[in-house]
Design a protein around this nucleic acid. Structure first.
Lengths: 208, 208
DNA sequence: TCTTTTCTACTGGTTTTCCAGTATATTTTG
DNA sequence: CAAAATATACTGGAAAACCAGTAGAAAAGA
């Protein structure tokens, strides 16, 4: 009998997953949580968990963080991500964090059960749609978001808010030159020729 | 015994809703569908349906359209929207289409059952969060998108692409002054102090 | 610790935006 | 048709962004 824990902020989804999994005699839903924090408090004291079905978008903490914690506290516990996000970068990020599988919420019930078993067997499991996304050629992929430093993100936000370099410099207590250097570096990272393009790029990548 | 139909493209959600509703003896899930088209084909020949739990975002047709069709074919059938969208405009739009209630997917199971009963009783039902959204004062509502003329939209797009006024003027075969006047009017309409803010506003309103 | 990254700061010059006006021709609409 | 909205064009000046370098200090990671 395998112990399963479900973490998802939608009670309806928890109910659905539970119903689908309980149909299988080999699986036992041991506990469910609607917040990452509640689950993380439970985790250290809990007995061994075979697999965690984890939603990425939780109201309190990021799913990435939750996954990291699981792997830290109980490396043998498998993590199967159940998410709405179909961006390749996110899927990869979760796998790098130690997740063993990735399902989209529109996966069929058969896929769900199959994936849970595959993961329990030590395999890496994806739903059909995720498989398609991961194997799709890269050509018309949206450009990967460049890595921004903390400061750069901060400055970017302020530029997008319509602030001038001078006013940003004042607020951050740095020289105006510094702010302009940040701006220039941002434009270079985004391959933008001017502020307008910079903001558009950033907006397109949900960075605002 | 009330007849329920569930339309949602996520099998997991269907499963969850079914499990929660079947617990109530007064409710019977008569059928479920993962596409709007499948449901609409079924609808005319089907017996009387008391209530449809309807997801707005379906892979094939828009939930608005589905709702409209339900009300056309069977006006007495209640529609309870189950959605991820928490924008006031969308909620209002569904109510105008004849929906009797609106739930967010993160609603608790109690709320779900309560709302189903309320709707069956002829009331209009919202989950707590939707209630909060609908009664929240308008002040920090996102500003309605200003009306833009064709030319303004065109210029806006080109500005966002990082073009300078001069280059835009050349492409449009108008004077640089004209482009700058357009830009100024755009900034005024968006209440933006400079190009960066303009692009951010436009991006926030999906105008790019 | 050493290396790399990040954050900081400056020079000096060019280009572009931004502001506040005015004004006319062309469409659209009541 | 008349009024309103739209698109066009210009002046002139202040402010800000943009370009292309350089470079030291601080923090983070190997």
């Amino acid at each position: 009998m395998n112990n399963i824990v479900i973490v998802d902020d939608h009670p309806i989804v928890i109910e659905g997953l539970s119903a689908l999994l309980q149909a299988d005699k080999a699986l036992e839903v041991a506990a469910t949580f609607t917040t990452g924090q509640a689950f993380l408090s439970f985790l250290p004291g809990a007995g061994f968990i075979d697999i965690v079905l984890l939603d990425i978008t939780l109201p309190d903490i990021n799913g990435v963080e939750v996954c990291k914690q699981i792997k830290k506290i109980s490396p043998e516990t498998k993590v199967l991500i159940i998410s709405n996000h179909s961006e390749r970068s996110i899927i990869l990020q979760m796998l790098q964090q130690g997740a063993s599988g990735y399902l989209l919420k529109n996966a069929s019930s058969e896929e769900l059960v199959r994936c849970v078993h595959d993961v329990l067997d030590g395999k890496v499991a994806f739903s059909a749609e995720v498989m398609t996304i991961m194997t799709r050629p890269l050509q018309n992929e949206p450009k990967a978001a460049p890595h921004l430093t903390k400061r750069e993100k901060q400055v970017l936000g302020m530029i997008a808010a319509g602030r001038t370099s001078a006013s940003i410099a004042e607020e951050l207590c740095v020289s105006q030159f510094t702010v302009e250097t940040h701006r220039r570096n941002l434009m270079q990272k985004f391959e933008a020729g001017n502020t307008a393009a910079l903001i558009r790029m950033a907006a397109a990548q949900q960075l605002l």
